[in-house]
Amino acid sequence: MDKTMNPTSQSILQQLHISDWNIRLRKECFGLLNENELILTQFQPTMQKYIDGLVEEFYKHQTSIDEVALLINDADTLERLKQAQKHYILSLFAGDYEEEYVKSRLRIGIVHKRIGVSPFLYLSGIQQLKHLINQLIEKVSPDDMAKPLIESLDKLILFDVSYVFDTYINSLVTETTNAKKKIEQYASSLEEKIQERTQQIELLSQTDNLTTLLNPTPFIEALQREFNRHISSQIPVSLIAIEIENFAKINETHGHQQGNVILEKIGTYLRKVMHENDIAGRIGNDQLSIALSNCDEDKAIDFCKKLVMDISTQTGTFVNIGSATTGPDYYCSPKDLIQAADSQLYLSKRHHESFLNSVTINDMPSQSEGDTTPLKHDRTNRHKQAG
């Protein structure tokens, strides 16, 4: 917490921005003049004589109010309150109504608010106290002294009440500010959770449930972004099209659960072998693709050879593969690269003795837009499938 915001680093006067000038101004506003202070001071010896009986009468009335009795709660607390009330009443006639006096009034307000005394209970108590003191003044003071003494006391009590209510108001403002901070913190936390859940939902919408690889549209979008990076960095990119052999037959023979297990294992394998900027997706029911960053055709072929062997070992399933590479001298479009890889995959499936066909695209297309990009060469790596 900032030291300037920590209440323990400031006096109560500083917290409420009360200065000597403020005290003088309030006295002027309530008409509390030096002559009033002198009149009050002259009554202190008399009040000292009657203070015990007056306080007893005051709390007899106060404890008859259920809300007040519940707040006081026990005899020990009541006795402490009586002593504090005696001190307060005598201070009304002490004649010193400056900074220390104001501090004591502010503390009264803070304590009353803290223990749950509502403003109306406080005001009713002040009214009862003033009534008892006025009765005493009228009873023991000469007629020519009673009226100015009561008027002076009225001014001082209004002065007191104004400061007590400052503490009530300040406490309410502080509570409101703290409540606002808590609401803002909760809202911020809720916003973070919503954002987190939204990201999770977006991720679920972008990825395949079984393989946790990208779905077709997010895969193509990610491929386009990577293309832009490869072109600016002048590095090659290879796209590998993978198709599980006889996948429909596996589902028919062993059930879809077995097919799901195979997809999950292949997805796990691809995520494991991917580098930072590689992209993998499930493009169809039995077809997956992976884009290899900074990978030329030779590296792509080596990757595919290992991929086929590893998938066969881990799943007992064979895959056919088509590989297409572009860059760094010329870059086709992502769409053309996907079509080229699919074409090579088709060749691998058509020639059953081959599991992999690959091609590098590094010439400008001569056909109209949308036609298949011409292939500089078609190198087929033939591998007799085991079993």
Rank of each mutant, 00 (worst) to 15 (best):
D166L: 07
I72K: 04
A341M: 03
L307C: 14
S104R: 05
E138W: 06
R105V: 01
S152R: 10
V117F: 08
Q85E: 05
L214I: 03
N6K: 12
S171K: 07
T8D: 05
Q258M: 08
F219D: 10
K130T: 07
I283A: 05
D76V: 14
Y97I: 04
S152Y: 10
D76F: 04
Y331C: 00
H17T: 13
E67G: 00
S238W: 07
D96L: 08
K180W: 01
E56D: 15
N362T: 11
T380W: 07
P142C: 03
K113W: 04
T372D: 02
F30K: 06
N73A: 15
C29S: 06
L292C: 09
I361S: 00
R107S: 00
Q224S: 13
L123C: 12
I51D: 00
K103M: 05
K155F: 04
V359E: 01
N178T: 10
A386I: 13
Q200D: 14
I72E: 02
Q199A: 11
I242R: 04
M1S: 13
G116T: 00
L106E: 04
K86Y: 12
D298S: 02
R80E: 03
G370Y: 11
Y59W: 01
R382Q: 13
L213R: 01
D363L: 09
D96K: 13
S188L: 15
G316R: 04
D302L: 15
A291K: 06
N22D: 12
N36M: 09
V140I: 13
L33K: 11
S354K: 13
A324W: 01
T177F: 12
T198A: 01
S289R: 00
C29A: 15
K130S: 07
K27N: 09
F159K: 11
L78W: 06
N73S: 07
Q199W: 03
I266K: 00
D298M: 03
E243A: 09
A280I: 01
V261A: 03
L54C: 14
V173M: 09
I150T: 04
N381I: 09
Y186S: 14
D143T: 14
T41N: 05
S171G: 15
Y331T: 05
Y101W: 05
A222M: 13
D302I: 10
S118Q: 13
L81D: 04
K306C: 06
D166P: 12
D302Y: 10
N362G: 01
P119D: 11
E99M: 11
E151N: 07
A75P: 00
D278V: 03
S232L: 09
G259T: 08
M145K: 13
T325P: 02
L81Q: 05
G109I: 10
R105P: 03
H351Q: 08
L81A: 07
N362W: 11
E276S: 15
Q44K: 14
E99R: 15
K155S: 03
I231Q: 14
G259M: 01
A248R: 15
I72S: 02
S238P: 09
Q314M: 12
N381D: 11
D302P: 02
N215D: 01
K60F: 12
S171C: 01
H254P: 02
A75T: 10
E35M: 01
H275P: 03
M364R: 15
K60P: 01
F165S: 02
D74C: 09
T211W: 00
F159V: 00
L16D: 00
L292P: 00
